[in-house]
Design a protein around this nucleic acid. Sequence first.
DNA 1: ACTCTCCGTGGACGCCATCGACCTGAGCCT
DNA 2: AGGCTCAGGTCGATGGCGTCCACGGAGAGT
Lengths: 152, 152
Amino acid sequence: MDAIDLSLVDLLRGNARLSYAELARQVGLSAPAVHERVGKLESSGVVLGYRADVAPEAIGLGVTALIGIVEDSGADSDDMLESLRVLPEIESCYFMAGVESFLLKARVGTIAELEQLIVRLNRTPGVASTRTAIALSTKWENRPQSVGPQPA
Amino acid sequence: MDAIDLSLVDLLRGNARLSYAELARQVGLSAPAVHERVGKLESSGVVLGYRADVAPEAIGLGVTALIGIVEDSGADSDDMLESLRVLPEIESCYFMAGVESFLLKARVGTIAELEQLIVRLNRTPGVASTRTAIALSTKWENRPQSVGPQPA
DNA sequence: ACTCTCCGTGGACGCCATCGACCTGAGCCT
DNA sequence: AGGCTCAGGTCGATGGCGTCCACGGAGAGT
């Protein structure tokens, strides 16, 4: 992970569809060199994947909610995790410090679907209680912060 | 937005670096047709961009926190938003229902930087109070849920 | 029925991805 | 010091891809 790797990561976080040739121009290496570096970043787990950023309302996921989960005393967190992982509506899952062990970000199409999700969560073994906060709007999300040197 | 557009969105949410030729094969159209459809999805604001998904610890952003903000009565939310937008550590920002008007997801390198961020937030005009919860680990994040027809 | 429009296909051409061969400099052993 | 080894780069070649263009068929409106 030298400065060039950081620049590559920055560039790809900004636009994952840049060609290797373009990346090469930006960092001042040849295309094959960039190709090899990016390949290593991928296989070493630095770059986990490439994703299109899509407006959720446009694909019928207009309701965003953040749900905190309090675990039963004696519940097994690993089992719970597996139960959560199965629910596709849960886009993100954090294990938290504090009373609420998990914090979930969920996206659904309607409030009715959110209700169903919450019911299902409360029925999940190990869940003592849930607390749901609804996002009225997403101002921005997953904005990449630059880590490399400033782009000259 | 027909079924093919949804499939394209699904495919690109799964892997934003798929070539147009590959997308074309998957949806059963020609490459130019896919190229045009994707271009329209981009310019109509359905596809907002393409981002590499990077392991945050690998780039020195090992501390994740969720911060709720309570606004002063009479504060201007738009001004606050601009103040928040300027802080690069804030990766996501939701406008919430409930006592806390905003919910932020922030990533920093160290607890000390988190402390500085919280101090800055509390000094921001319009902020009455903040509440910070620290994520001990990110189980997963921004998992795309499939919206198209099941991939046959 | 004619035509307009939309949306697709197929062909062409230049650029890109990717492979292999070779080069160079750093570090280390003798 | 000399030379081995290896990591990591460049260069050149080739096949596939991105992208532009001209053309064609289906459906709606008159």
